[in-house]
């Protein structure tokens, strides 16, 4: 008898609630744009923030509801743009965006500019800088504690054995997480096709820069003169005690750095950061090296 009572009670309750829920579903239904879900579907769902929105869902909503540009997803690139275009029923406007990659502007690894002592503090660059002013000998240089490595959602940046980060250009999507993670502002995004950079951010006068790091820019201006001799004086300019490659027109050539006494001005392939990349993948032979050039 009790069993029947229980079944009846539960049955009545169940029917009651289902009716109520069914009613509530119809009555309080919120209209959503189905395009939002569709766009979100084609996005990579890594929530990296490279597009400027906090998440893929937020970007999808912006595209579907507010007509945001469809080519902002740096991770998906052209493929994703085409897919969004398909979902939204629009044409892909303009030419393909150039692929950007993160470039680390420091070659001061432990061989060129090590820590003066042993470091036993917190293993995080920002914490080291803000808690103790920890630095290698160069106060502008990379600390090599790997905050950028931890920040990368794509496993595209690694520390070399000598403690300097290098970027896997193939995996890098230019989301910019490492750029904000670096407390010394050493990482920037630049087109993957551009070769020549001054891999240094030291504003120290030449004599000091040279003393603290073997690979520092010592402001000798050889590269600036070489650029001027090549009738391209805007390509490399001086900013205080540092030569800077013009990143508006990217016309600097790798040859300008041939005479650089410290190899601070070098082509991507000759930089410490690239060497480590190749060294790290010895088994894959040539293709690994080729791939970064695209």
């Amino acid at each position: 008898m009790i069993i029947i009572q229980a079944i009846l009670l539960m049955g009545v309750l169940g029917v009651g609630f289902s009716v109520f829920l069914g009613f509530a579903n119809k009555r309080f239904h919120v209209e959503t744009n189905p395009k939002v879900d569709e766009v979100e579907e084609v996005l990579p769902a890594v929530n990296c923030g490279g597009c400027g929105y906090p998440s893929c869902a937020a970007y999808a909503e912006a595209v579907a509801e507010n007509g945001e540009d469809i080519d902002l997803c740096v991770v998906g690139g052209a493929e994703t743009t085409t897919m969004i275009a398909h979902v939204m029923g629009v044409e892909v406007a303009g030419e393909d965006k150039e692929k950007l990659v993160a470039v680390v502007f420091c070659q001061g690894d432990s061989e060129a500019a090590g820590f003066p002592g042993e470091y036993h503090g917190i293993l995080d660059c920002a914490a080291a800088v803000y808690s103790q002013d920890v630095a290698k000998r160069c106060k502008y240089g990379c600390l090599g504690l790997g905050s950028c490595v931890n920040a990368c959602p794509f496993d595209a940046i690694h520390l070399s054995e000598t403690g300097i980060p290098y970027v896997d250009a193939e995996k890098c999507t230019a989301c910019g997480k490492c750029v904000t993670a670096c407390p010394r502002d050493l990482i920037e995004l630049h087109p993957v096709t551009h070769e020549a950079f001054v891999y240094c951010k030291s504003q120290d006068p030449g004599a000091i820069a040279r003393k603290v790091c073997k690979k520092a820019c010592i402001a000798c201006k050889i590269c600036v003169k070489a650029a001027a001799a090549d009738d391209n004086p805007e390509a490399v300019t001086m900013n205080g005690n540092l030569a800077v490659v013009n990143t508006e027109n990217y016309t600097a050539k790798a040859e300008y750095g041939q005479k650089c006494p410290t190899d601070a001005y070098s082509s991507r392939k000759n930089s410490v950061n690239y060497e480590s990349f190749v060294k790290d993948k010895p088994k894959e032979k040539a293709p690994a090296g080729e791939s970064t050039k695209e």
Partner: peptide, 16 residues
């Protein structure tokens, strides 16, 4: 735990 280092990190970050 390196409590002082972490707190100093937060402190200096806030100040700077």
């Amino acid at each position: 735990i390196r409590l002082v280092a972490w707190i100093r990190y937060a402190k200096n970050f806030i100040n700077i």
